[in-house]
Design a protein around this nucleic acid. Sequence first.
DNA 1: CAGAATCCCGGAAGATACTG
DNA 2: CAGTATCTTCCGGGATTCTG
Lengths: 129, 129
Amino acid sequence: MGCHYHAAECKRVGGVLSRIGDKWSVLVIIMLGGQPRRFNELKRLIGGISQRMLTLTLRGLERDGLVSRTAYPTIPPRVDYALTDLGRSLLLPLERLSTWAVGNLPRIEAARAQFDRQNAPETMAAADT
Amino acid sequence: MGCHYHAAECKRVGGVLSRIGDKWSVLVIIMLGGQPRRFNELKRLIGGISQRMLTLTLRGLERDGLVSRTAYPTIPPRVDYALTDLGRSLLLPLERLSTWAVGNLPRIEAARAQFDRQNAPETMAAADT
DNA sequence: CAGAATCCCGGAAGATACTG
DNA sequence: CAGTATCTTCCGGGATTCTG
């Protein structure tokens, strides 16, 4: 008891989490939460992501069935990305985690600051004499 | 509307997720969910983690105030790791995500397999003639 | 506009050896 | 037992260039 997961299940959970836990996936999913978006629209909204990483992130999410890709063969080309049903079903647990994150970020940052103060990197030997 | 997050909040969420979304943190947190554990106990339970990464992961979680470290100055040394209140409060949203992950993993793997079948890497030119 | 291809660097992480 | 130290390898990801 205590841990009600088998090791295999833990790894699976870890696998999914490292899937969406990469640098950009969550941002993309959240940005697609309301409505479909086009490639450069996503790029602008997220800000700071390279087109390469956006492409790779979207490919990964598409591969996992979380995002659908619709290309219109027009000129200039237009591609819409949207959450699939599976992707939308992830939105709720993700928001729960978001709520936790937003609500507890102050605590985390405080703990971090205190930890760093106690394990002073250096400059302490000179300062505290 | 649609996206009820500001960009800054999205990034914060992403930050926390990349914190716990690394390769091992979630596993450690879940393993500590039931009861405190000792270092090598965690190592054995998780399996496949190097002592280096376990140390770093635990340090990170301790720094963020999610895990507490208690060292008993005995010989041989004994160190207990446990979730803090903050860490325990993460357990619930994490379990929600776990539930989603476990429940939807078949779908994800199916989507993945199909995607890979359609975008056949190579060896198809020779096989399908 | 929406990518694909290439180059490149820094950090993540494994393996190994040593220690209080 | 519970780490630290070092070395090395691998790959995530940025910048840039080219295309349909």
